[in-house]
Write a protein that binds this DNA or RNA. Sequence first.
DNA 1: ATACAACCTAGAGTGCACTCTATGTCAAGT
DNA 2: ACTTGACATAGAGTGCACTCTAGGTTGTAT
Lengths: 125, 125
Amino acid sequence: MGYSIGEFSKATGIGIHTLRYYEKEGLITPGRSAAGRRVYGEEDIAWAAFILRLKETGMPLRSIRRYAGLRYAGDETMRERLEMLSGHRKYILEEIQKWKDNLASMDKKIKIYEEKIARAKDVCK
Amino acid sequence: MGYSIGEFSKATGIGIHTLRYYEKEGLITPGRSAAGRRVYGEEDIAWAAFILRLKETGMPLRSIRRYAGLRYAGDETMRERLEMLSGHRKYILEEIQKWKDNLASMDKKIKIYEEKIARAKDVCK
DNA sequence: ATACAACCTAGAGTGCACTCTATGTCAAGT
DNA sequence: ACTTGACATAGAGTGCACTCTAGGTTGTAT
């Protein structure tokens, strides 16, 4: 039972090299077979998906590693993990605002260009 | 008239080393004094601010360089520049959607944690 | 039994965007 | 005249997150 690194890589979309790197960094720590091969469990799939989520929202690996450490440490760390996620939620909110500001600024710039091009056309007439 | 690299750095918040790097990369190309020192113009201030804006929205330096090249090439490139910006606008829109999805996913995760912690408290009572 | 794919480790290489160092020149104030 | 600080160049170093290579071992299908 369990996934080999190749199977796990296909299931999660994370490259084999990257999975080994993540293990070295303490993000995902699979078990080992008798022969020393990595064995990933079913629960690692969900965990990998969550890691991808955190990465997508710009959480640096060292923070994800910290979160992973708490996770592997057990239930007493739940409050601390919740605090990390709440902090990250605030960060996401700020990012959304930043992107909206940037969109507004881009729209303004684009409008200026459209006007300039329209005027240039008038000159040619 | 014009800004020295130190003055320009203070005015834009871009470090001196970074400004020289940006010049090498073709992003901002200041003039030179008789003695060979960089002289930045007033219009470079607005351009630097716009570069910062593009950077903040994840445009890689090589794309900014391409845009800069068009800008320095003159008015005939306006349409092409507009196309770049329109494409980038679409990208920003997608990013906003991604961040919103990520926020929803984070909220879900946080709710699960809050429930788990609440349940743990009940057990202690 | 043998071929071959998938696995293992240690460590090097990559791409991006800086950031800094070493060494030297130049301009302005005392 | 002299010191000091800001400037110049070329090139090395940094941090992040991979990504790959070399050399070796293991499991399975024929």
